[in-house]
Amino acid sequence: MTLLEIRDLKVYYYAFDGVVKAVDGVSLELESGEFFGLIGESGCGKSTLGNAILRLVPPPGRVAGGSIYFQGEDILQLPEDRMREIRGDRISMIFQDPTAALDPVYTIGDQIVETILAHNPEVSRKDAEARAIELLKLVGIPGAEARVHEYPHQFSGGMRQRAVIAIALANNPELLIADEPTTNLDVTIEAQILTLLDELRRKLNMSILLITHNIGIVAEYTDRVGVMYAGKLVEVGRTVDVLTDPKHPYTRGLLGAIPGRGGRKGRVTEIPGTVPNLANPPPGCRFHPRCPRRFDPCDQEEPALVPLPGEGRMVACHLYRRLES
């Protein structure tokens, strides 16, 4: 069942010196209960896309077009008070830095209780407190009964991210957007947190949209993956298909750039050139100036995302256009 359907979404930043097209016509569907990875390098628009789903794009950014259907309803058309009912309740979000997400002057317990009561005013404070302890246990915080009364600074980095997850899950969301949730954490803690998220997803039957630059964690945990480049979704499909048999030249370049796969001390495959300026992106396919396989139409015509053989596989590249007809 489709939980979220993004159609031709455009998010632009209206800066002093031009319009930066951070997300420029992205369409994407998220199934109920799935673990979806959105991958790309800095500035590709992946975080902007995540923020747009919650309507939290900071100014001078604005949604410039498209729609986002959440369970059939276009949330971009909702009045702000209706949106507030959804945010933190049916869709919630966690970020890279758990310290910035927590209020230092309230206990962890108070912050969970506040989240519950904001959306469920009929619940008693006592019940909300009991639920807070239950949530801390759920995310694997030992001694939850005591730690619910502690402040964020008394938690380690990994435990803070667990507390943030507890807050995000307080109202049983159907969708959790996780924007680089483990980038600040050590790799042994990262494995704990992602394993936990995956377990919770199954247990609570929620969908996770994981936004990351780390191909390893996409390979390890997600069901499907979307690859973004310069504001466009260039490839999408089952993770196992995309990572073992990438179709788009950018996806191939990205996978080739991972060190340690070929011979030791050999050359790591480089992608020539640099990411384009999104205030003035190249015409045609945005990847064409760096693409080793560009040909006639690439610098003129923008390739559409077209289906390929294989379950839900799509790619936006002229190389595959012939398959379509």
């Binding site: 790799v187 042994t188 990262e190 494995a191 704990q192 394993t195 780390n214 191909i215 390893g216 964690i217 390979a219 390890e220 945990y221 993770t239 196992v240 990572l243 073992t244 996978l255 991972i258 796969r261």
Partner: peptide, 17 residues
């Protein structure tokens, strides 16, 4: 703990600390 780059290997047993 280092994520595998091959999704087909994800079933392997991990040693989580």
């Amino acid at each position: 703990s280092v994520p595998t780059l091959d999704p087909r290997q994800r079933g392997r047993k991990k040693m989580l600390l």
